[in-house]
Amino acid sequence: MPSTIVTEEIELIHSGKGPGGGDSSGDGGNGGDGDGGRGDSSGATRVPQRAYVTGMFIALAGILMFFMAFVSAYIVRKDMPNSAWIPLQGPRILWLNTLVLIASSLTLGRAHNRFKAQDEEGFRHWWATTTFLGILFVAGQIIAWRQLAAQGIFLASNPSSSFFYVFTGAHGLHLLGGILALLYVQFRATRKVARGTAIEVVSMYWHFMDGLWVFLFLLLYLGR
């Protein structure tokens, strides 16, 4: 095999790029993509705060794939020949629930702003409002289930109702997790994770769950 870059090797050793430095010579050996690795290597923290944000991004990608699997199953299943599909008339309370959840995202944004403005009281107020709206949403979803059940529509009644229960159930479980996280930030001073990071990460999750619900809701209504 012909070698391409022998002569400059001694140079490479002499010039010796330090940490974080990139040099573009050579096929991979000494390359740097300008991505310098852990920047804030302040010995005090073991895990940089941004790892939590990265982690939440990654988690949301995984959760998105999980729901997209349901969604693609829904689309395929609905349009199959002999699908035995009876479009589901969703309970009206779902509209209200959707509004409540959207409102919770707004109050959460408010809380986040208050926190940035270092207004602790305002933050706690809006944060608690968000938690309350979240609980209200879950309660509303349970009422929707009960209304359907009262009409005799259960999980196994029809593929459309099966998907309805699966969508709302899976989303509701994820949202309950979000409520727990909201309560945790409200009542427990976080030690390992800085408070700001915790607030940011929980907000990301909550907004995502809100957006996801709006998408699922539109799918259930428009795509039935």
Partner: peptide, 10 residues
């Protein structure tokens, strides 16, 4: 060993 990092041509 014969030192080489590879060859873009190859």
């Amino acid at each position: 060993a014969h030192f080489t990092r590879g060859s873009n041509t190859l």
